[in-house]
Structure formats: structure tokens, C-alpha cells
Simulated scan of single mutants.
Amino acid sequence: MRSLGTRRVAQAAGAAMVAVIALAGCSAGQVAETALLKAPVSGLNTQSPDGNLLIRNLQVAYDSPEGYSANGTAPLQVSLFNQTEQPMTVTITSRPQTNVTPGIVSAQQVGVGPLAPSEEPSPSASAAAEPSAPALEPAKFTIPPLGTQTFIPGAGKNLQAVGLSNELKPGFSLSLTIQANDGEAIDVLAPFQTPTSPASRAPGNKDENAESE
């Protein structure tokens, strides 16, 4: 037969175990909720003034830390949602910047078509031998009622900004104007996409650690 002191010790140990299990359950619940959270999207999310057009994940596709050169072509990524029960015609352009703002770039044309080659021409190649940019259709298209239009570089038709006013690289934005039907046009800034993994480091100079003579 257990003594009174022994029973009290056993009861205290049992209560402590229940408390530990309860705390573990709360912690597990918090971790599970955190795991369900999605990673933040680097693109711009906005909408037309009347709310009929939703613009999601608008951004300039990442290519390298150097980005795109002036007069070059940059592919864009975006999803557009028609919130109405009528077809919607959307036009995307880029207005020239009247006031030059550091980090904000415009384009001569925004069009849809084959993806422009990303390779830089060889310095020794003549201008006549350089490949011409692919012909693009104006970025004007119709989204069906309650439908979606998505552009992803390399998948089907590609949305591209041609003739960049300046270099476009990480930390910079592309100035665009989007208009739905005959509604009010909205000016937006498409940010340069954040890479999903860090850029590889350039190989070091083999003599950088050599002792000076």
C-alpha cells in the first residue's frame, strides 16, 4: 500500500506530463499552420479602378544579375482575370518617361509573340549578321467572360517589352500602362523578378591568394 507522500508525488508527475503533452500539441498546431503559409510573391498585385480586371504577379522575368541591356527585350509574366460576365479587351503599352527616374525603365513597344533570343551577339559579328528581333503583335487581346489570360515566358505566346529605354536589372522596374475595354488606363510598375536561388559566384582569381613578391 502506497503512502500518502508517494501518491502525491505520482499525482504531481502525472499533472506535469499532461501539461507537457498539451504544450507539445499547441506547438505542433502552430508549426502546421505556419507550414500552410505560402511563400510571398515578388510580382505586383493590383486591379483596375472599377475592379473589373485583376492583375496578379506582374513582373519582369529574371534572367541574370546583369539583367537586360538598353534597347533590349525583356519578357514579362502576369495573370489577368476578367471579373465581368462580358468579354474584356485588354491593352498593355509602355509610355515614355517624361521625367527620368533612376531605376524606372520604359519600352518602345509591348507585344506578344515568339520569345526573343537571350544570347548576346558576338562582338566580332557584323551588324548584317546579327539576328533580327522576332515580329510581335501589339499587346491587345480579349479575355472571355470570367476568364483568365496568363503569360509565362517560354510557355505559348510571350508578353515582351521591346526597345528598353535603359538597362533593366534587379532592383529596377518597368513602366507599363494597362487599359481594360474603354475604361480608365492605369499606370503600373512591373518589378524585376526575385530569383528563387542565389546567383552563382564567379570563380576567383587564381593568383588572388598568392603572396606578393
Results as ranks from 00 to 15, higher is better:
residue 131 P to K: 11
residue 137 E to F: 03
residue 158 N to P: 08
residue 137 E to V: 02
residue 86 Q to S: 13
residue 95 R to M: 15
residue 139 A to W: 06
residue 142 T to G: 12
residue 159 L to S: 11
residue 97 Q to K: 05
residue 142 T to L: 09
residue 81 F to I: 04
residue 103 G to A: 07
residue 104 I to W: 06
residue 139 A to R: 02
residue 83 Q to Y: 01
residue 100 V to I: 11
residue 160 Q to D: 04
residue 155 A to H: 14
residue 126 S to D: 11
residue 78 V to A: 08
residue 92 I to D: 04
residue 147 G to Y: 03
residue 156 G to Q: 11
residue 125 A to K: 13
residue 165 S to C: 04
residue 147 G to N: 03
residue 160 Q to G: 01
residue 155 A to C: 02
residue 110 V to E: 00
residue 148 T to C: 00
residue 154 G to E: 06
residue 122 S to G: 08
residue 111 G to L: 07
residue 90 V to G: 06
residue 122 S to E: 14
residue 93 T to Y: 12
residue 99 N to L: 13
residue 129 A to V: 03
residue 90 V to S: 06
residue 103 G to I: 11
residue 117 P to Q: 06
residue 87 P to T: 07
residue 133 A to I: 12
residue 113 G to N: 10
residue 87 P to I: 07
residue 160 Q to H: 02
residue 91 T to Q: 15
residue 153 P to D: 04
residue 142 T to F: 13
residue 166 N to T: 07
residue 157 K to H: 08
residue 133 A to K: 15
residue 138 P to W: 03
residue 96 P to L: 05
residue 158 N to M: 06
residue 169 K to L: 07
residue 125 A to Q: 13
residue 121 P to Y: 02
residue 159 L to G: 08
residue 88 M to W: 09
residue 86 Q to I: 04
residue 82 N to S: 01
residue 105 V to Q: 06
residue 149 Q to T: 03
residue 132 S to Q: 14
residue 132 S to G: 14
residue 134 P to L: 11
residue 107 A to T: 12
residue 135 A to S: 14
